[in-house]
Design a binder for these strands. Structure first.
Ligand SMILES: [Mn+2]
Ligand SMILES: [Mn+2]
Ligand SMILES: [Mn+2]
Ligand SMILES: [Mn+2]
Lengths: 238, 238
DNA sequence: ACAAATTTTTAGATTAGTCTAAAATTTACT
DNA sequence: AGTAAATTTTAGACTAATCTAAAAATTTGT
């Protein structure tokens, strides 16, 4: 369905121009995301899980993306983005994160409310729009969840933060991002008084369940489960 | 194609919830536009022309929209929006025009550059987004082309401006809008030094071809064809 | 190493939106 | 009023994206 809209995205298709549908963009983005977590090729099932489709549908799409040279794909052997496919994915991710910044910084949304809207906005097709938005937002380097924003040439800094769960007692860290983006988690983190840039001081780590007692900024100590700490990305300070 | 995206727009479909696809929204918007120009029912061919599809496709879609109670449609007799269909159309138009204001006022686009981008943005589905955008823009009443923006309840003021071509020699008018939205026309109007709110004074009307000599603000007189004057909407001043 | 379990692909259908060509209906004209 | 022209609808086909069920390939485990 939905043919009427944007698939025959003609544009200035001088010579080699990738024409990628909404759906294809989502597949590429998801393959990119999965590839960031491993060096291995990505399995059909892994893609199916994130696209919320069935493996059969994924097989079909991988064949198609392969014909377009957006992925390298050998039947039964998993998939990997080509350089071209990665560029498409990075452009979509750039748009997604810029729009999230816009929604939070300009429109006043909370950080747990913007992801689904950005999932729609990330497919709006206009180079000029993206670059003007970037300028309007004063070239942000990070989105509201601490994720880095790829530059206009599709380059993204590789950041290596630690999980709060790996930090030792007595250490002082800065909150730099989250690895879980669900609304429930983000709301909980906010309720604890933690936001990007917050200074956290590990008062105590419980031996039994690895739960923590953490001082957040100047406030009273807060209890935090290991599960929560695993999803907080931090940088040790000093 | 494009099923993966938004058709099964589930949302809070408690009880009676219109589920309208991107394509359906475009049809409704176009039927609305055509209905504004006439009291008669809208013909299949008229819709086909604006949707850039064939009459056969339109017939099919009208049947479908009729089943959804978004239009009243009798085979061979033309089509008309129902109250529900009109509300959908007005919501899309509201979004379109708000986004155009955003693009011009906040991102610095020219008024001739925003329509195509707004054609995409108008289908982003989030009530909260629309209302926050409206607030961010300080509740604009008109878009960059002088078109009125429907309110959140789908009400739009009926404005009755004159075409500049109907104004008599010696009259003083304010430029309030355009009835032609092509990039070429908008650029030409801007080049003449005319923008929304400009004061125009009709110095002379040529009997032969109805072309005009017009003084724009305090600048030197400009020549203007009847064709151009027909597409400028004005309000007589004083 | 080989059978069982798991994963992946293929085959065949379905849906939304489109098309062309042919049939039906309405409108226009003598 | 009766026919020709124009418009509209129907019939049948196509594409993108999906699904289920069955077949094929790979991985796992003894
Ligand atoms: Mn997000
Ligand atoms: Mn984010
Ligand atoms: Mn417009
Ligand atoms: Mn406009």
């Amino acid at each position: 369905m939905e043919t009427h809209q944007r698939t025959p995205k003609k544009k200035s298709n001088y010579k080699i121009m990738q024409i990628t549908s909404f759906t294809e963009e989502n597949y590429l983005k998801i393959i990119y995301k999965l590839s960031a977590e491993t060096d291995a090729d990505i399995s059909t099932n892994a893609v199916a899980e994130l696209t919320q489709t069935k493996a059969a549908s994924v097989s079909d799409m991988l064949r198609k993306l392969s014909e377009k040279h957006l992925v390298n794909y050998q039947k039964y052997q998993g998939v990997r983005l080509t350089e071209a496919g990665e560029q498409v994915a990075l452009k979509v991710i750039r748009k997604h994160r810029l729009w999230e910044v816009f929604l939070v910084e300009k429109l006043g949304f909370n950080w747990d409310e913007v992801h689904d809207i950005a999932e729609q906005l990330e497919h709006i097709d206009s180079e000029e729009l993206v670059e003007k938005l970037d300028e309007f937002l004063e070239h942000p380097k990070f989105d509201p969840h601490g994720d880095p924003i790829p530059d206009p040439n599709g380059r993204m800094p590789k950041l290596t933060y630690q999980n709060l769960s790996e930090v030792k007692q007595g250490e002082r860290v800065l909150m730099m991002g989250v690895s879980e983006h669900s609304s429930a988690f983000l709301q909980y983190v906010a309720k604890l008084g933690i936001s990007l840039g917050s200074e956290l001081y590990i008062l105590e780590i419980n031996d039994f369940d690895k739960s923590l007692s953490v001082q957040i900024a100047q406030a009273n100590p807060q209890f935090m489960s290991h599960e929560v700490a695993k999803n907080l990305l931090v940088k040790v300070v000093k």
